[in-house]
Amino acid sequence: MASITFDFSFFWEALNQIVGALPLTLYITISSIVIGLIVGLTVALIRLKKTVILHPLAEFYVSFTRGTPVVLHLYIVYLGLPMVWDVIATQYHWGIYSKDIPLTALVIAALSLTAGAYMSEIIRSGFMAVPEGQLEAAYSVGMTTFQAVYRVVFPQALGASIPGICNLIVGILHGSSLAYLVTLLEINGVAMMLGSQKWSFLEPLMAAALIYWGVVLFIERIAAVLEKRWKSYSDGGVA
């Protein structure tokens, strides 16, 4: 059996090159989470209010998305969205076709749909954790339903959802590593490219793993600070 050696010089070389892909990975992750938060909040409210027509669609979206792998979401959007877009663009003479859509936008769209489904469950659980008396108290001081949800219920639900949102951010960060399958050179994509150039994948993959780990540690630290501030706020103290 041939012996395997770890080339430290190649490891450091790969680490320096892979760090350059970190901004793209963070851009994909943050954009997907922000869009996913908007989608998830909308879907969560539809499911909580049980809107007649939209509720079954929301239930299907969450069930299908959570029941299928992220890599399938990526391929479905990558292969299917351009086809649908071109049909609509031709019909309405938009002048912008799938070839004009950046690859990054397709990846973000796929991960946003994934994030939206999971975010919906996280936010819905957060809303359900808020005592009903909070809403009644808001009504008693003259707030409208929108004001009560926005100013009273949502902040508490969001605070209770911090651990779940943190886990989702980490999951989407990891999911962004699949973007290399559609030739987008984020962290994992650069690592795989470097490995294929020298037919030695261990060093660049270890370098990529360290970068991912560092980002996750930072996310966990931020989440811990936010949880501490929210707990102080919910206990009536000063954050």
Rank of each mutant, 00 (worst) to 15 (best):
L37V: 06
G40V: 09
G40Y: 05
L41W: 03
T42N: 02
T42Q: 01
V43H: 01
A44H: 07
I46R: 01
R47V: 14
L48W: 09
K49I: 05
V52D: 02
I53Q: 08
H55I: 04
H55K: 10
H55D: 15
P56W: 02
P56H: 11
L57V: 13
A58F: 07
A58E: 01
A58D: 04
E59K: 08
Y61L: 06
Y61F: 15
V62P: 08
V62K: 04
F64D: 00
T65A: 10
R66V: 07
R66D: 02
G67F: 08
P69D: 04
V70R: 01
V71G: 00
V71I: 15
V71Y: 08
V71T: 13
L72N: 01
L72D: 02
L72E: 03
H73I: 10
L74P: 08
L74C: 06
Y75K: 01
I76M: 11
L79R: 05
V84H: 00
V84R: 02
D86W: 01
D86E: 00
Q91Y: 07
Y92T: 14
H93S: 13
G95H: 08
G95A: 15
Y97A: 08
K99I: 14
D100R: 10
D100T: 12
D100Q: 14
D100A: 13
D100H: 15
L103F: 10
L103K: 15
L103C: 12
